[in-house]
């Protein structure tokens, strides 16, 4: 896994995991790797991964079962809700960028259609 240098590793991994969950590659209720193994997978410090999981738990994307380990939130509706929140936040940020280039509504929809066709 490649990391950028100007953001904390923890936040980059949080983003990665969110994308995996929202993209469906981590199904709701699926077991996630324990801290140390996930850290080995990403080649990062286990304390960093501990922070990642802590943040994801705070955002209710992951929960810990004391005996069985850590799992993705099995509530698909809640995940969908979070996904929508995430997507609209991404969208707002993107719109703000495009506004700086002077893109208005029609151009925006046309660009979107074009990129979907590709």
């Amino acid at each position: 896994m490649e990391f950028k240098s100007n953001e904390t590793i923890a936040s980059q991994i949080v983003t990665y995991v969110k994308k995996e969950i929202f993209g469906g590659r981590y199904a709701p209720g699926q077991k996630v790797l324990p801290i140390r193994e996930f850290a080995a997978f990403c080649s990062v410090n286990p304390n960093t991964v501990a922070k990642v999981y802590a943040q994801l738990e705070e955002e209710s994307l992951i929960y810990t079962d004391s005996t069985l380990g850590k799992f993705v939130n099995p509530d698909a509706k809640q995940i969908e809700q979070k996904r929508q929140q995430y997507l609209s936040a991404q969208m707002s940020a993107f719109r703000a960028e495009l506004r700086k280039c002077g893109v208005r509504e029609e151009e925006f929809i046309a660009l979107a259609k074009q990129s979907m066709d590709e």
């Binding site: 240098s5 100007n6 953001e7 904390t8 590793i9 923890a10 410090n45 960093t48 922070k51």
Partner: peptide, 9 residues
């Protein structure tokens, strides 16, 4: 480490 990245970029 993480604070170095956060504060200095």
């Amino acid at each position: 480490g993480e604070e170095v990245r956060e504060t200095t970029g």
